[in-house]
């Protein structure tokens, strides 16, 4: 059986990371979840640079991308991904606190595949994350890429 491709989660807030991982865990997703804590790390992972040079080749099944992150923010990461022919096919889901219209507009303009506002309400939040995991990790057929791989590198959950 092939290993499903990992889900890349770029999120700077450890609490959000914990909540998201808890929600994902409820569904027992087969996908490995790679967590990067800022934009630089996320790009390093994607380009297999620095600490990620040893990871196996292959793009993640989906990137869950927070907007507001230290160093390089979500929009900048999105711009880089969508400008790179190798990374462009990876589905990117913006996962953010912001309901601001300009964030929505900018994200879609840069080629985001989905935009999800993190709800304050725990149950809604949990359900949204579960739905994301199920859809992008399981239901959605990812673009054909390199052989499905297991990543190591970033912390995994």
């Amino acid at each position: 059986m092939t290993t499903p491709r990992p889900i890349l989660l770029a999120e700077d807030n450890p609490r959000d990371v914990e909540l998201i991982l808890a929600a994902m865990a409820e569904h027992n997703l087969a996908n490995e979840i790679v967590v990067c804590r800022d934009g630089v790390e996320a790009l390093d992972y994607l380009y297999r640079r620095r600490g990620f040079s040893a990871r196996r080749q292959g793009n993640p099944a989906v990137i869950l991308l927070d907007l507001k992150m230290p160093k390089v923010d979500g929009l900048e990461v999105l711009r880089t991904i969508k400008a790179d022919t190798g990374l462009k096919p990876i589905p990117v889901v913006m996962l953010t606190s912001s309901r601001e219209e300009r964030d929505l507009v900018q994200s879609y303009a840069l080629g985001a595949n989905a935009y999800v506002v993190k709800p304050v309400d725990f149950h809604s939040y949990f359900n949204a994350i579960k739905a994301l995991g199920i859809f992008w990790g399981d239901v959605n057929e990812p673009p054909p890429g390199l052989a499905r791989t297991t990543a190591n590198g970033c912390s995994t959950g």
Binding site: N13, R15, D16, L19, L67, K68, T96, S97, S98, R99, E100, K118, P119, V120, D121, F122, Y125
Partner: peptide, 13 residues
């Protein structure tokens, strides 16, 4: 809109 919502989400979460 961004930052004030996050702690609330964490409390409820």
């Amino acid at each position: 809109s961004h930052d004030l919502r996050a702690p609330l989400r964490h409390i409820d979460g």
